[in-house]
Design a protein around this nucleic acid. Structure first.
Lengths: 227, 227
DNA sequence: AGTTGTGAAGCTATTCACAGCG
DNA sequence: CGCTGTGAATAGCTTCACAACT
């Protein structure tokens, strides 16, 4: 019921903006560790990830006091603490639904296993694709979409990745949630609605480009005025 | 530093948070238009994209007064205004560097042409891949990486998409900028640094999953406490 | 001396609630 | 009357600047 928690895990909620930056810090620290660095100052690490040192220190202070004044942060220790906070010390089985170009890109994306993610299932309705073996860290056989519920239950999957066309996204999402999945990563260009208690993150490739085009247009507008 | 500040486009700067939502509104309005809707209220549109109606109205009011009190917004008119604001009424040639799984997924992503984006070049250093024809809206031949500068100049490319492995990202980014590109969409799992005046947006697939894992872990933590 | 950790201040974004208008 | 548009209030995030500590 009430566990004492010797290592105080974020009783004070970490703000969303900070959570979004933690994986970036994590990635930079891994690179530093590989390069053999043992300590790093807030100034150095901030420069490497493109934020201000004050922001970085504030972010890290929300997790705990893991630095040494006058010295900086020990790379390995900080890496461990961030990993723990992000849940990367656990094993996260996930399913990818839709083995088109994007689904393949995801399945072939290295660096899942090193961060605790494991592809427990690849699912597609196309009989031409079912049976194919895909993967970077290890090969996974594509299974028919009908077996979605089985795969989720067998492996205790909590994270589902939607890489289907837009029109199929909501139906797949509903099935994933009904089967027990509670976090959805949606790559389909469509808003998916979920019951409360389920988390969704969406990435729409076209959408990101539109934001860029907006900024580009602004620059062009400014140049016209100057000339 | 004292600029005269005589902008014509966006006299009142539209906040970044709003810009990020405009493409979502755009997508929802396209869907509504296809379904034959002629008007829509802030309440309806907000529900379709998953924001509050107050936020939606505030966002739209920053672009101008395009609604009718007591009625709502005319779908076609609002769609046009948002498109104009986002620069979607223009033609945006872009290059995609790196024709691995992700590069192919991007090249095959339909709905570029309908939003004003046009793939002016696909580039890859691998001779096995060079010459291949890829694409959804129209086929584009993969050209050798050496021709990056040529492609950018020929087509007047302002937007570059990096879909290379992490280690190649910064070098490709530097070459794109040197060739005249001013907006970078980075899909490589690596921070790219750019001179001021160049915009960057980064999407790291693994990074997004880490944020999800964080939320999932929180839910698990809460359940442990309850049981 | 050097760098973290953090209140306080400043800024940006969201929500509220209602006046204004069709 | 219904729905937009918006000032005012609130919440959230970032930056500042310096005390605290090694």
């Amino acid at each position: 019921m009430s566990l004492p928690r010797s290592e105080r895990t974020a009783i004070t909620a970490v703000p969303e903006a900070t959570v979004a930056r933690l994986p970036v810090y994590h990635r930079a620290l891994v690179a530093l560790a590989e390069r053999g660095a043992t300590t790093v100052s807030s100034e150095e690490l901030a420069a490497a990830v493109g934020v201000t040192s004050a922001k970085l220190r504030k972010d890290l202070s929300l997790l705990g006091s893991y630095g040494t004044r006058g010295v900086g942060y020990e790379v390995d220790y900080l890496l461990y603490q961030i990993s723990r906070e992000l849940g990367l010390t656990q094993d996260w089985p996930l399913v990818i639904v839709g083995v088109g170009n994007l689904g393949r890109a995801l399945a072939n994306y290295g660096g899942f296993s090193s961060r605790g993610f494991r592809i427990a299932g690849l699912l597609d309705p196309d009989p031409e694709i079912v049976g194919e073996k895909i993967g970077a860290d290890f090969l996974v056989e594509v299974r028919p979409l009908d077996e979605l519920e089985d795969v989720v239950n067998e492996a205790g999957v909590l994270i589902g990745v939607i890489a289907t066309p837009a029109h199929a996204a909501q139906a797949v999402c509903d099935r994933l949630i009904a089967a027990g999945v509670r976090s959805i990563m949606n790559f389909a260009p469509h808003v998916v609605v979920v019951p409360s208690g389920v988390s969704v993150r969406s990435v729409d490739l076209g959408l990101e480009l539109q934001v860029l085009a907006f900024h580009e247009q602004r620059k062009l507008g400014r140049e016209e005025v100057r000339s």
